[in-house]
């Protein structure tokens, strides 16, 4: 159940940045998540709808890049793909490996809509009405 509190943490960061940049809305929130972070992407997406309602990111799309588990062997120094509960080297079978990727829980980028863009859109709509 901590996906909801993670959403609130993301939103708090997004709101701060949007305010600093003078944005009026957020169109995209881009995350990187690895399975060893303990964060479930599906639960995060579900929680996002609840958490982001009535915020500056209410209409933002949540894009999650799933990062695979990869390790580097301390014995043969080769890289291999691994799973969350089997992180041995795929080449020589050594269990002493180092994680290269797979534990990310990163707010990578956000996309902001500025006042001027919106103003343009609004004017365009008004003309359409005329």
């Amino acid at each position: 159940m901590h996906e909801l509190s993670i959403c609130y943490s993301i939103l708090s960061q997004v709101e701060t940045i949007a305010k600093q940049k003078g944005a009026i809305s957020v169109s995209l929130v881009n995350l990187q998540i690895g399975p060893l972070s303990g964060v479930e992407s599906l639960l995060l997406k579900n929680a996002w709808h609840i958490a982001s309602a009535n915020t500056i990111a209410a209409s933002a799309r949540l894009k999650i890049e799933e990062i695979p588990v990869k390790v580097r062997c301390t014995s043969c120094h080769l890289e291999s793909n691994a799973t969350i509960n089997s992180m041995r080297c795929a080449h020589c079978g050594e269990w002493r490996t180092q994680l290269i990727s797979g534990d990310e829980m990163l707010l990578r980028t956000i996309e902001l809509e500025r006042e001027e863009n919106t103003t343009e859109k609004t004017l365009f709509k008004e003309r359409e009405h005329v």
């Binding site: 960061q13 940049k21 990163l106 707010l107 956000i110 996309e111 902001l112 500025r114």
Partner: peptide
């Protein structure tokens, strides 16, 4: 849209 790189946990 304006993309802002954040790269934070």
């Amino acid at each position: 849209g304006e993309a802002v790189e954040v790269l934070r946990s």
